[in-house]
């Protein structure tokens, strides 16, 4: 079962002077089991879009289908809890949602809200904490004692413990140092490829999009601009410039080489294969 948006509009505070249309006529189908990036400038509607996936926001027009559930504009959606159980949403600066006395208890909080027994919740929580790389010795610590990056990992474990089929992350690497951000992205890849969870990531970081994602969805001013696979996306240099997207360094470098008369194959997307290709050309 896929994720599908059909003619979806969303307006904040409709029929008031503050009314603001954040999404307009979104038609979109997202493939399961992939890692998809959702990109676009600030205010393009990325966060609004992903908050439809677990019914935090309900469409003001159109219809959203997520797994087995359908959310139609103007109709009461009654299966909120079932939906939220299966779609985990990690907010920006997720570390601010931690509140229990210990790391382990905080991770148990989600599953217990969905009716999992305490014993079972503790078991799942331990597994989830292990996946995100929190050491056993930190389980009984207060979340406040951990570093910023670790806190965020605990918050992500708290969502993973709900055993979602879809994991949505809103700018999960914001504020981390580059290495911390890389490690975080590695974690999502692992969650996606090894645990078979569909991952959607809202991000501004094009290097991450290139390195880790399979598909990309581009929003602009509340409208869907394009949806494509990563390779096609990064081949279209002029388009990225027009959409005010700062391409990853390797793409910029390849473009500079092309301007200077050296065309590099579009399959080359990392430094090692680039060096190999350049060296090969030199030897020829």
């Amino acid at each position: 079962m896929p994720i599908r948006f059909e003619k979806v509009d969303f307006e904040y505070s409709p029929e008031t002077p503050f009314a603001f249309k954040a999404l307009t006529d979104i038609n979109l189908e997202l493939a399961m089991d992939k890692m998809t990036a959702i990109i676009g400038a600030t205010g393009s509607g990325k966060t609004t879009l992903v908050q439809h996936l677990n019914a935090l926001l309900l469409p003001t027009a159109g219809q959203v289908t997520v797994l087995d559930w359908q959310i139609k504009a103007g109709q009461k959606f009654t299966k909120v809890k079932d939906l939220r159980h299966r779609v985990g949403l990690v907010f920006q600066f997720a570390e601010y949602q931690l509140f229990e006395e210990t790391v382990l208890k905080d991770v148990c909080f989600g599953p217990q809200n969905f009716g999992v027994s305490e014993e079972e919740a503790v078991k799942i929580a331990r597994e989830s904490l292990k996946i995100v790389g929190i050491a056993e010795s930190d389980f009984e610590k207060s979340p406040l004692e951990l570093s910023g990056g670790q806190k965020r990992r605990v918050a992500i474990a708290g969502i993973l413990a709900m055993k979602p089929q879809i994991l949505v992350l809103d700018e999960p690497t914001a504020g981390l140092d580059p290495q911390g951000a890389e490690n975080m992205m590695e974690l999502f890849r692992k969650i996606n490829k090894e645990n078979g969870i569909t991952v959607l990531i809202v991000t501004h970081n094009m290097e991450h999009v290139l390195q880790y994602c399979d598909e990309v969805v581009v929003l602009e001013k509340g409208q869907l601009l394009m949806q494509t696979d990563i390779k096609t996306f990064f081949e279209n240099y002029e388009y990225m410039e027009k959409a005010n997207i700062n391409p990853p360094a390797i793409i910029r470098f390849k473009e500079l080489l092309r301007k200077n008369g050296l065309e590099i194959s579009s399959d080359v997307l990392d430094i090692d294969s680039l060096a190999k290709e350049i060296a090969g050309r030199y030897r020829k």
Binding site: Q179, G180, I271, A275
Partner: peptide
Amino acid sequence: MQLDIPFVYKVRNALKKKGL
């Protein structure tokens, strides 16, 4: 030290390894 180096440096070092 878990830090990155600029892209151009990475490219240069990779090319150096290839003998350029």
